[in-house]
Amino acid sequence: MASSIQATDLDIYYGSFLAVHDVTMTIKPQTVTALIGPSGCGKSTFLRAMNRMHEVIPGARVEGKLELDGTDLYGPGIDPVTVRRQIGMVFQRPNPFPTMSIYENVAAGLRLNSTRIAKGDMDVLVERSLRAANLWEEVKDRLGKPGAGMSGGQQQRLCIARAIAVRPDVLLMDEPCSALDPISTLAIEDLINELKNEYTIVIVTHNMQQAARVSDVTGFFNIEGTGKPGKLVEMDETKRMFSQPREKATEDYVSGRFG
């Protein structure tokens, strides 16, 4: 299931504004990659470029190469809809569909693209996804209740269940815990640790401890000043990034000594 991602000389634009410049990065299958860096350095932008959610914004575009297991995701004839099925995404704010039940939320992705699934099979898939998201025990008695009626942490795990229900190859997470309390955060971090057996995970976080706890590899983005593009400064094994980074800027950032 899990796939590798290779970005080569990737430039990401909002209209004429170059937001991220010249990123070359390899993401190995079945690893957790953390992206860290100061606000506005383009972490979300880069993450959204990886599953072609970037181009949803009017005028937004990408130059360079981005490959999933060797296939150019921005190549001619590649449908962004297919890309997003392969590369799932979890957002900063939990966003279950408010008018749908918990069950329907998980099933939503499975029903897309006119896929017909028998009720019995669907039950199995929904349960498996909710179990994988460590949410089954908490919601199994109220699957028909609205997803919006749960706690923030539960909603976020519901969104993870929804994302993994369609069995993507890669899971992108943009600050998935920033709206959550420490307990829910821990629950999600545990979940990430389990999910990495099956998925390639990329997570954006502002929390150094979180990056250190959950990730195998860490990439540090930085920006020289406002209006300048963000760049990938350094990327290495997480242990090494936090103990003996090669770049001065990385060391300053991870140790909290940052301008």
Binding site: N51, M53, V56, V81, T82, R84, R85, G88, M89, F91, R93, N95, P96, F97, P98, A108, G109, L112, N113, C159, R162, A163, V166
Partner: peptide, 22 residues
């Protein structure tokens, strides 16, 4: 809310499916 439209798109919804979902 953009939040819900993006949720649908990120699941691999076409535009019409996004309209139906969100």
């Amino acid at each position: 809310p953009l939040l819900h439209q993006e949720a649908a798109l990120a699941l691999g919804a076409t535009r019409w499916e996004m309209v139906q979902l969100a």
